[in-house]
Design a protein around this nucleic acid. Structure first.
Lengths: 194, 194
DNA sequence: CACCGTAGAGAATGATGGTTCTCCCCGGTA
DNA sequence: TACCGGGGAGAACCATCATTCTCTACGGTG
């Protein structure tokens, strides 16, 4: 088995297991059993479990943001793209494997003890906020709105995870639409004054 | 040492340690060392670590909601009390021991493996939402607003924990004020129509 | 065919940590 | 004083891993 193939398989198994059961509940032997990659190889690819966790979070981050962007990009209208973020959250929450936000979960579990993990989580959340900020800017909405939408999205993720329900996405979406409308009005007012 | 005293001391130590370092990073021996309560006594009071965690979350829930309510109650005006929730979050986030929301953290760590913990977390979040809903009702604002404010508060908690900054409280507060004003306007409009 | 490096299976190692057990002391009681 | 029960200190026990090591097989190469 090629080294890159082994790496992908290991990460596939790690992601499935860590995400659904949490990190401390999954042993390296579980990852081996689920991936077919021997312990020896696992330790060649990742010097320690912590690095496997780091790699899992990093790859998931890349894919997660790609999926989100691909979804939002289906809309040409910039403002619609902002709302699409919440539509996408709703689809994500409704997936049968959904188990909350992987980064929020990892932070709760390991943020206090692993700087590597804490950094991955901060990076991911910063990137997501950055993405939202870009959408808001392109839609010509006030910058502060991004902060608010970010908090709504985070609140929806954490609540959907805890309650095992996709409902929070709809609530967040409604709130987002109202905030956007309010922001649009005040942006127009500012333009009128300026 | 009285049994109730031992219980309180054990919970004091457990709370301090579990909250700051996470549950799996703290052993029963650590709790013994920090509390002065022997292992034998600890296991008399709590049949297993899981129950100690449960009791920690439960006592913290009672105190947390009491502190919040006491803070908000200083304001006579119902609508002001709603906003006070976010003021209080800001004070909480700024405490030096602040380390995110204990329940969100616990859920990320143990939600998938401990039904006892998962239940405590759901109970706590439901109670907090219930509290917000009550405040919103008393202020004569539309019911749906509570959902939105809840998501903002959750988003602020999780973000403040991850970024180690009290800033999200201010952002959430601003968003809350705007949402309340919008809600007030639409409530008046509905009253006018009704 | 003989050699070699890599890989896998799975046991060994070592640490950690939840839970229990032993042994001893002390305070209360007849 | 002799007895007794609860309590503490800390070792013991046991399971669970993360990580490493051993042994064996195999595919490529001269």
């Amino acid at each position: 088995m090629d080294s890159t193939v082994a790496r992908e398989r290991a990460l596939d198994a790690a992601e499935r297991l860590f995400y659904s059961r949490s990190v401390h509940a999954v042993g390296m032997a579980d990852v081996r059993d689920a991936s077919g990659v021997s312990l020896k190889r696992l330790y060649q690819l990742f010097p320690a479990k912590e690095q496997l966790v780091e790699a899992y979070l990093e790859r998931r981050d890349r894919r997660w943001r790609q999926r989100l962007a691909a979804y939002a990009d289906r809309y040409a209208e910039p403002e619609r793209r902002v709302v699409a973020v919440f539509d996408w959250l709703g689809e994500w929450f409704a997936e049968p494997e959904f188990h909350g936000c992987a980064w929020i979960n990892a932070y709760g579990e390991l943020g206090a003890t692993s700087e590597l993990v804490a950094r991955q989580v901060r990076r991911h959340k910063a990137a997501f906020k950055e993405y939202l900020t870009g959408l808001v800017r392109e839609a010509g909405l006030e910058r502060e709105l991004a902060e608010e939408l970010f908090l709504l999205a985070e609140g929806a993720m954490v609540t959907a995870g805890i309650t095992r329900s996709p409902e929070p996405a709809a609530h967040a979406r409604r709130a987002a639409v109202r905030a956007i409308e309010a922001g649009r009005a005040s942006a127009r007012a500012a333009a009128g004054r300026g």
